[in-house]
Design a protein around this nucleic acid. Structure first.
Lengths: 222, 222
DNA sequence: TTCTATATTTTGAGTTGTCAAAACAGAACT
DNA sequence: AGTTCTGTTTTGACAACTCAAAATATAGAA
């Protein structure tokens, strides 16, 4: 029962769906299906097979949840993915905006040997270029609870630490505005009517972004 | 009709089978099947599909040959494979004996972007760690006609330039005996009755190897 | 030429992963 | 309770790839 890349993709999608969900909640089929990019019926079939193998707990018509075995496996897939991203940026000199797709492919074929080599070369990094935490080899992950630009205090110096979206054009936008992880800024105004957030970047520039975008930029008070 | 990794493996196997064969000859099904590692019938089925797509010419009961389109594609697979091997050795510090398996997997998923990045980082190398020539991005390959330890002149200083076997234990053996590409030696005796070749390495050591092994070590008179 | 050995092809079947569309369950709304 | 909406599951089918074993072709030996 060696997990195919298909299986790995389902587990990874579940892992990420669960983390943006209250504890104990089940991930509904439809959500999983769209996350993986398959028709709903396909997800049902696959999930039943995963449940057979003990990787998930499945309640028909309700949803799925990773078992502990499934969680561990998913964490290892995520570890590979994020180490690869970090490697592509740090060693290969690629842009943080373009490494996601490559990592998506590579994560299913790199050997343990290679992963650990990358990890060592990078000095055992704890986060990837987007600030996402990298699980350890035994499947543990630091799960920090960041504020976002939507929830952080106003008029306070904060530092971008993580960006929870992999869309290349969004990432390029952030880069251009000096909003990559590590950069400082202050939130000046939130206007819920206008659905916008106005901020001043470290470079002193005022920019306004939508709340959707703002919620994807996580920060730490600095 | 994007070629799957399965297709790529058939093409690569054909490419390599053809190069150790007289020109114009067809590769017999059985040989292809064992090279790819499938049952004979499977190869037949696949080859018929490849012929459909114009990647090979197929004569039933006789054999297969790559078309020009197939040759080009195979060369690109080989390019990826060999650049990856070189990368794993030069950049990742892995042993030349252990990179083949990793490259075998990676060759099917690395993006063009990534391949060209590796190529640039390595300074556009012309050979991989085993001395195998790396095809260019447009599918051309230098096809030098080396001597082997079986055909080179005796008592003449020669330099190992290429090793045509990927078996890890054989490669480790060569490494230990200072027979990696680049090292010098002289062939002292060939004994066809004993099926052996005796040589003196650059380090002055006398060693004797079988003719099977000797034929896989290609050299240049230095 | 006939027989035989060997290689190749066919056939029938299985696996994995997928979809479209029909059938169905559960919750919410009269 | 009955109806409707939405999401889920079932069903039947298909594509890619594979195998084992039966059928067949080719070439060489008798």
């Amino acid at each position: 029962m060696l997990p195919s890349s298909t299986v790995e993709n389902y587990l990874k999608a579940l892992y990420q769906a669960e983390s943006s969900l209250e504890d104990k909640a089940l991930v509904p089929m439809g959500q999983l299906a769209t996350a993986v990019g398959v028709a709903p019926g396909t997800a049902t079939t696959m999930v039943k097979a995963l449940a057979e193998s003990g990787l998930v707990d499945y309640e028909p018509y309700v949803g799925v949840r990773l078992s502990s075995a499934g969680t561990k496996l998913a964490a290892l897939v995520l570890r590979r993915h994020r180490l690869i991203e970090q490697f592509l940026v740090e060693v290969m000199g690629m842009s943080w905006a373009e490494v996601h797709e490559d990592a998506e492919q590579l994560e299913h074929v790199v050997s343990d040997r290679l992963v650990e080599r990358m990890d060592a070369m990078l000095g055992h990094p704890s986060v990837d270029p987007h600030g996402d935490p990298i699980p350890t080899a035994d499947g543990n992950i630091a799960a920090p609870d960041y504020h976002s630009l939507l929830t952080c205090p106003l008029h306070t110096a904060v530092r971008v630490t993580r960006v929870t979206d992999q869309d290349a054009s969004f990432l390029r936008f952030l880069e251009k505005q000096h909003l990559k992880p590590g950069h400082s800024l202050e939130v000046e105004v939130r206007d819920s009517a206008a659905d916008s957030v106005q901020l001043r970047t470290g470079a002193g520039l005022r920019i306004t972004i939508g709340t959707q975008a703002a919620s994807k930029v996580l920060i730490e008070v600095s």
